[in-house]
Amino acid sequence: MSEHTVSSYDEELSGIAGRIAEMGGLAESIVTDAVTALITQDLDLAQATIGRDHRLDDLMHDIEMRNVLVIARRQPMGQDLREIMAATRIANDLERVGDMAKNVAKRVIAIDSDLKSKTLAIGVEHMTELALAQLKAVLDAYTRKDAEEAVKVRERDAEIDAIYTSLFRELLTYMMEDPRNITQCAHLLFCAKNIERIGDHATNIAENVYYMVTGKRLLDDRPRMDETGVEDKENA
């Protein structure tokens, strides 16, 4: 898109987009570190990860403040208005991704013992890779204003949901086998849920990117199922 007649307006918008990109990069890195800490039981890394979440909160508030100022100063219209709306919501999602990762890091400290099952660790790791790939793809879609890519990200979320459901079942089995596993497995279950939620946030971001680019809402026709086995068509 061509530039605004008032160049400082362009600077304000690109400043906001730049901060979203920074939040995205930071969120990816925090998720990676939290899960690495979980798999390797690295308590120091877990502690460091918890501390890094602050920066995401600060960036979100900074973006909010900037959006408010742009609205007050420029009264944005059309594409610009949608960009501002999308930035506010995407910043929120990325901040939540940080919270999810922080929660995983806290559970690393709570578990404080080697993981009982190799396959569980691999499962969580694989799910994390998928969630991170989703996050990366959706942030690229945001930067490139690519609505098609956003649609693809949204469709791929089902894979993460499927892995989460199989992990859920596996964890239940371990808990039934030996009640001494319950503490660790319960923590792992929350970790898995957190990562699954990161995938959901990537999906939210994808929907906002789609709206930002096209001005239309993605209609939700995907039937969704979680570990409860109950199909949720209403609130997908």
């Binding site: 898109m1 605004h4 007649t5 008032v6 219209m77 594409q79 949608r82």
Partner: peptide
């Protein structure tokens, strides 16, 4: 028109990109 105009000229005008 003000949130999602169809024509690029409209978009450019309402967002202050004309000239």
């Amino acid at each position: 028109i003000f949130t999602n105009p169809v024509d690029k000229r409209t978009q450019d005008y309402i967002t202050g990109r004309f000239g």
